[in-house]
Design a protein around this nucleic acid. Structure first.
Lengths: 331, 331
DNA sequence: ACGGTCGTTGAAACCGGTTACATGACTGAG
DNA sequence: CTCAGTCATGTAACCGGTTTCAACGACCGT
């Protein structure tokens, strides 16, 4: 049988659809007997309101669009978990649209959201400012996460600079001087900021950073270390632009019989759950919290009407563990 | 300015909305000059079709509802990744609705999906058959994952029994005889099946399984081991109902100075990415593939019209690593 | 007995699209 | 020259709800 509609309910209860709608939405001005008849009809027909139709007429969907790049592993789950926590606490659903294949036009993904969601969460560290401005649906309240553009949109930014600086200072304090950075993807703003701040901090102490390419994948961390070994390079510390690569590097070092942290200290960025288990020194981002705050900001924007506008900064924090400090306590 | 509608475009291009709709959907029967005028109007107004309205009239949303329990860590990200891979490859979006707080009525989450999605993916290992039958919207094609009920719905099941048996056999082959099982949540069907099959297999060899309660969280794995130690129990192998708990157990054993695998072998279930890094022996589920297959099944159901109906079985596979075999190769 | 008020109800417009069908111009065959 | 058949286009119904507004009856005070 086809799904029952509000009209079926109305017919069965011998009332108009208006009354049914009122009962469904808990309007007060319906007499007791009528309400009962309607509720019974609803029950008998197993009627469930059609959310799509409702959002059309109310111009409100109770859903948020989430557009993420092809995130690796735990970063993805953590951020979605955080977003979901806040969203469902406030009665919203999450509509996921991965931007995978950075090649693909982001515009497509964004356009598909029109009329489906009340607001948009967009994380696009790869996209150029102009492309982004073009792709962003103008009518949709949006929160940008870790993007370059700053065009009046509410946004939340990770303080990559502070994080990278903390790692540099930490390495310096450990007395390391031959320092390697495994960078993230070329166009990625987070990767760029981390690399730049890291190199700058070291340079201020007269130390040159050896830069290796990477793409945020574990494999690229492995490759970077293998390349160092092949070149017979000497180094006593590695800072990878994210934990995934740091973990790859760690594995490669272990296989090569290089002592961590004695010979080489290693640090990552993100503090994914795995980092704790492996004793990886890293920069804690509180990823879930980042997602949660982004949603919270967006919903305030939506519900409050007035913009707390804001550009929020999300501050990271250095977590020292065994890969840089042999005596590091479990944390 | 408010978002442009199809009528605005029509007015601007001096045509009827029908023609605009035709151009938008690539219908062939529109003359070249008209098409151009319309395309230009679309561009000038920055018009983007309203997906919600479209789905209402087409009775098709191109979205799939995903209802998951409050999954832990990597299991969640892996399964969503798999689902998303298949869904977006076939042009669908994912609408997430966590069923968190198992207390909360699942019915609410499911009802909210009506009219928003074309099909439903439901993973609810906790829910009783009757409750599920009640909550499932009848008109919505659904794929059930790891649920007890089998009510004509398409479903995909993990072969928990085979997995648990494999672990039992493995422990026996290692010569372990004092074996502990850390169980999952009480009402969880996966947990129940694993525990039952494990105990049964051991019993067939005259070995009694010591059963400890758990809830799939890492902390409960820690707690279980601590309890064993407090009781001064003797044991030489632990099978946790999932990797998270196994990892917790591993940490607790390490802190207690108990050698793994020499004194105690440890195994988990799921093979989350973390398991590989920690060298945890486990049962590989290929979680992402599970999600992908579920979506694939659902879409075949939707698009093919005819039901490949099927109940698909997803076979797991034992992966032996360092926590049960000192010489285990990296894998 | 009458006008006014209130609470309940229904008719109909609307949200933004799609699409069946009608219309009218134009073409080619008989 | 007429008639059937195309083709491009427009009109209007429809998808399943919400909401405005008017109608209606009961009840009230005078």
């Amino acid at each position: 049988m086809a799904e029952a509609t509000i009209r079926d309910v109305a017919r069965r209860a011998q009332v108009s659809i208006a009354s049914v709608s009122r009962v469904l939405n808990g309007a007060s001005n319906v007499s007791e007997p009528t309400r009962c008849r309607i509720e019974e009809a609803v029950r008998e027909l197993g009627y469930v309101p059609h959310a799509g139709a409702r959002s059309l007429s109310m111009a409100r969907t109770n859903a948020l669009g989430v557009v993420l790049p092809d995130l690796h592993g735990e970063f993805f789950s953590e951020i979605v978990r955080g977003m979901d926590r806040e969203a469902s606490a406030r009665g919203y659903l999450l509509l996921l649209s991965p931007l995978h294949g950075e090649s693909e036009r982001p515009a497509v993904a964004l356009r598909a959201m029109r009329g489906r969601v009340d607001g948009l969460l967009l994380m696009a560290p790869q996209i150029e400012k102009d492309a982004l401005a073009l792709a962003l649906p103008s009518g949709l309240p949006s929160v940008l996460m870790n993007t370059r553009a700053d065009m009046g949109n509410a946004s939340i930014h990770l303080d990559n600079e502070a994080g990278a600086r903390a790692v540099a200072d930490h390495f310096l304090a450990l007395g390391r001087r031959q320092i390697v950075h495994i960078a993230g993807p070329k166009g990625n703003i987070d990767a760029q900021e981390r690399a730049a701040a890291f190199a700058r901090t070291l340079a201020a102490h007269g130390i040159e950073t050896k830069l290796l390419p990477g793409d945020f994948s574990e494999g690229s961390g492995v490759a970077a270390v293998e390349r160092l070994l092949a070149e017979c390079a000497t180094f006593d510390a590695i800072f990878a632009a994210n934990d995934n690569m740091a973990i790859g590097a760690l594995g490669a070092l272990r296989r090569a019989g290089i002592a961590v942290p004695d010979a080489v200290a290693v640090a990552g960025f993100d503090d994914i759950p795995l980092a704790r288990h492996l004793g990886l020194t890293t920069v804690r981002v509180r990823i879930a919290e980042l997602g949660q705050r982004a949603v919270s900001l967006l919903l305030d924007l939506l519900e409050g009407g007035d913009a707390p506008s804001g550009r929020i900064d999300h501050a990271p924090e250095l977590v020292v563990r065994a890969t840089s400090d042999p005596g590091a306590a479990q944390s």
